[in-house]
Structures are given as C-alpha cells and as structure tokens.
Simulated assay, not measured.
Amino acid sequence: MPVVPGFLERLAFRANLAPSAILDVHGAASLHAVALADELGVLAALDGPQSVSSLAAGLACEEDALRRLLDALVAVGYADRSGDEYWRTRTTERWLTEGGDANLAPFARFWVDVVLPYWREHAARAVREGDPGASLYEWLGDDEAGWATTQAGFRAAASLLVDPVVDALGDYSGARVLDLGGGHGAYAVELARRGASVTLVDRPPALEPAREAAAEAGVDVRFVGGDYLTDDLWRQLVEPDLDSDFDPDTGPDGAGDADAGYDLVLLFNVLHGHSPAEAATLLDRAAAALAPGGKLAILDQFGRGGSSSLADVGVALIDLTYLITFGGGTLDADSVNRWLGDAGLSAVETKTFRRAPGVKLLRVEAPYPDRN
C-alpha cells in the first residue's frame, strides 16, 4: 500500500519540520513498482512462500535484481518476507490479483504506460490554455498495445463497481440496452450475463478487449465501432437494420428488427470527456433512442473536491486528470440537470458508492408520457 508515516513522522509533517512532498515521490515509485511487478508476472507468482532463486528462474529475471524489486514491494506493503522467501500480502491478494475482489494492477499499468507519458506531453498546455490540444484517445491513434492497456485499466477500475451498479439498475433481463462509450465491456458483459440484449458503441480500436471479454464470459454482445457524436452512427443505432456487428466503413453485416428503441441507455464515464455542447447533444440523442418508458443511466464523477479528506483529494486529482487528458472535468450536478431538462429528461434517483468516492449513478427518465 502507499507509504503510511508513523506517529512521529506524521507530527513532523504536520509541523512542517520534514518535507511531506517526499511522500509523493515514494507514492510515484510505488506505483511504478506495482506496474513493473504485474508486467513481469511477480504478483501472480507470489501465491505462496517462494525463494528468490525459484522465482527468478520461473520469471526469467536476474536473481539479485528481482530481490531488489521484491524488497521494494515488501517496503510498501505488497509482499512479505521471511529469510529468502517472499509471498504476497492480503492487500495484494485482495486488490492486485485475479482471485481477489478486484485486480487493480492493470489500472496501475495504464497510469504508468499511458496516462503519465501523455501527461508529460500535454499537461502544461492543458493548464495554460484549458485544452490539451489532442485528447488521450486521439494521442493513442492506432496504437493497438496502447488501446489494450487503456481498456484493461478501465476494466480493472470498473471491477470495483460492476456488481453494485448493475444491481442498482434493476432487472433488465430481456431488455434492449445501448452502452455508449462502454469500450472495456465490463458493464455490457455483466448485463448480457443477466439476460439483456446489449449493443456496445465505441471507437473501433477500443472494442477488441471488450470482444475478448464477452467471448471469455460466453455472452452475446453486439459491437458497433464509430463516433457516437456523428449522425451516420446514430442512424445505424436507431434504424431497424442492425442485429449484428457494425463497422462504419463496411456497414452492418446482418439485418434484424430493432423494435422501437432501447429500454436502457448507458452513459458510463462518458460525459466528463466532452464539452458542455457535446454532452448536451449526446443526452438529446440518447433520449431520442429510448423506447417508451425507457431509462437513461449516467455513471460519472461529480464535484471538484475542496477538503483534505482522502475522498475529496481523489476527486480533485481526477478532475485535473480529465482536464489534461480530455479538456474535460468532473461533472457539476446543476449543469447535468440543465442538459437533462433540455433533452426532456429528469433524474429520478441518485446512488453513491463507498468504494468510489465522488462517483454517482443517476437513473433518468422522461418526465412526460409523450417524450418519445
């Protein structure tokens, strides 16, 4: 875990007798150590006490160099040691491996391999001008490895919330669901597993990991590649001619009956990456795609922080990150309600989650019977 100062150290930091900024340096190094350990397979290999020599042989690492990485993991609480043997801690077991509650190691790798390199190139411009010049997604371009790392990171972060969020949505078995910008596929796959008929829309490079996740789960999800702000894509989404995967360059590869709209439209971690005008347009189009009685669900970060609590620190830092990566930011509730009203929609329920401070789920519906 990140470095936790002892009692006397905390007193020294609070009295400004020691440079508390050193903790930020330690935290950055710890993040890189976790990402490296995951990349090399160290975290997965530490499933019981093992000697450095056996680990080094199995992981194809130089023995003394691996020992130094392991000792760093011990220092920050991700591994334990007795003599020459190492094993992962309960923290690592629960939060950084596939068998735990959530595996956030791919999220660490996303930050190290994608976010921070992008940040170094674009942060100064974003703060000076209010816009990074090119979004993170534009920067990724056709980099397949970068997209795979990005979507694996998003999926890892989503793993904290998938079950409670889908539970909160209610029973959508047999319903038609449209997941806009759902690239990593975590929510689409879970809804499909629970019996929904799901169409997932995102940029083509973002879809391959979601296809793999759906295949691994043994569920059917239809994937639509394209920009959900374009008219051509929306015609494909609302017209009765798509019952299978669609590619904007070749058109649909099948035909079917699209009925009269979607019972549920998801906008999960999407609005923060758009300008107010784009967000308003997207909500208006999502509203038009709903079947009579259908609902829209918005999951995103709200607020700007403002106190010294850990939760507010996290929200403030993610707000800065959205500025740098997209020119966006965490959402303002008043702005969202105004956009919803302009689209003929109204939030009827808001849910928060203890595991993700600042994140809110808005369940939205048309307040008037004739909206659709």
Rank of each mutant, 00 (worst) to 15 (best):
Glu239Lys: 02
Leu290Asn: 10
Val313Lys: 06
Leu290Arg: 11
Ala186Gln: 09
Leu296Phe: 06
Tyr262Asp: 10
Leu310Lys: 10
Val359Leu: 13
Asp71Phe: 01
Leu331Glu: 01
Thr350Ala: 14
Leu264Gln: 09
Val165Gly: 03
Ser159Gln: 06
Asp113Tyr: 10
Asp300Trp: 11
Asn269Val: 09
Ser307Pro: 00
Arg371Gly: 03
Gly182Glu: 11
Leu69Met: 01
Leu178Ala: 05
Leu96Tyr: 12
Leu46Ala: 01
Asp342Glu: 11
Val265Arg: 07
Leu40Met: 06
Trp95Leu: 13
Leu160Trp: 01
Asp38Ala: 12
Pro209Arg: 14
Thr150Gln: 07
Thr230Met: 01
Val42Arg: 02
Ala123Phe: 15
Tyr228Gly: 00
Asp253Gln: 11
Val364Gly: 01
Thr199Asn: 01
Asp263His: 13
Leu323Arg: 11
Phe7Ile: 12
Gly305Ser: 09
Asp259Tyr: 12
Leu242Lys: 00
Leu180Ser: 04
Asp263Trp: 03
Ala188Leu: 06
Ala145Cys: 01
Ala215Asn: 06
Leu207Gln: 10
Pro240Tyr: 00
Ala210Gly: 14
Gly181Asn: 08
Leu310Ala: 14
Asp249Lys: 05
Arg128Val: 15
Arg203Ser: 11
His272Lys: 14
Ile324Glu: 03
Thr330Gly: 09
Leu283Asn: 13
Gly133Leu: 14
Ala108Asp: 13
Val265Trp: 05
Asp245Arg: 07
Glu208Gln: 15
Asn337Gly: 13
Arg90Gly: 01
Leu271Phe: 12
